[in-house]
Design a binder for these strands. Structure first.
Lengths: 145, 145
DNA sequence: CGCGATTTGATTGTGCACAATCAAACGTGG
DNA sequence: CCACGTTTGATTGTGCACAATCAAATCGCG
């Protein structure tokens, strides 16, 4: 045989398709807030940590500066974040939410629960899925193949 | 309280991050073949189904023409696929692999197994993960939120 | 101090994703 | 036959992702 397996047997496609489907669900909800999904993830970090450097933000989200720099400029243009050079190290850029950026937090509070109920897994299944995904991610990022 | 949950508690981020991590693993392996990950998915379908219309391809991969049209042109420019208008219906475009496109299948045979072992889940866990992902995808695509 | 190596973020270029719009081809009722 | 609505793919525009490269700031070591 040695036939290449079809799409239906490839875990990678299930992962890829599920990720895009869930992002699409967020797209609808976030559209009301004027945010994209990666922008929402950045704000999640800022709401939790307050001021943070671009580097630490990239480490938290596993995104590099080529993705974050223009994204942060768009958030700044929309008045949701401030950016400034660090006082101690002039190379670092510190990002923090503005008042408008903090206000969005209230409007986004119900979002994770709405999404979770739309997906409709049992709580135990959610935990199981997250555990498996985190292990996959850890293996994929450490193993250079 | 009513605090927005952090990144670590959001299943959506685990899904998003795991998907990008696995895609990154494929990126290394596919680089030797001169393919991107979505291009590889298109070829998987073509290897299995032979000739197929752009519409059916989009349905199989859940991708629209705005993504597939330029992607297929790049594959055509690399000599891996042919494109032609359908005889019965001049609106449809039929895509099929060239000889070079079919040869790549041999070079890609070991790939899913190599990736699976790099990820390192037990077979039962793989099945479990795929089941959960497919259910998430089904719920996310049917529920309009 | 001074100079090479490192760190940090920005820039550039390619390639997805997806919404919105468009034009050509098809199909059907009158 | 023909006008109208539908289907099919292409095009356009915005916004991620990521590799590669760059410049400025900092650090380390002699």
């Amino acid at each position: 045989m040695a036939e290449t397996a079809g799409l239906d047997r490839q875990i990678c496609f299930s992962l890829y398709a599920a990720s895009r489907a869930v992002t699409g669900l967020y797209r609808q909800a976030l559209g009301e807030l004027g945010l994209t999904y990666p922008q929402y993830l950045v704000l999640l970090v800022l709401w939790q940590r307050g001021e943070i450097s671009v580097g630490d933000l990239g480490a938290a989200l596993a995104l590099d500066s080529g993705t974050l720099s223009p994204l942060l400029k768009r958030l700044e243009a929309h008045g949701l974040v401030d950016r400034s050079r660090g006082a101690a190290d002039e190379r670092t850029v510190l990002v923090r939410p503005t008042a408008a950026g903090l206000e969005l937090r209230e409007r986004a509070t119900g979002l994770p629960d709405r999404l979770a109920s739309a997906i409709g897994l049992a709580p135990a299944e959610f935990r199981q899925l997250q555990d498996l995904l985190d292990r996959v991610r850890a293996a994929a990022t450490s193993h250079p193949l």
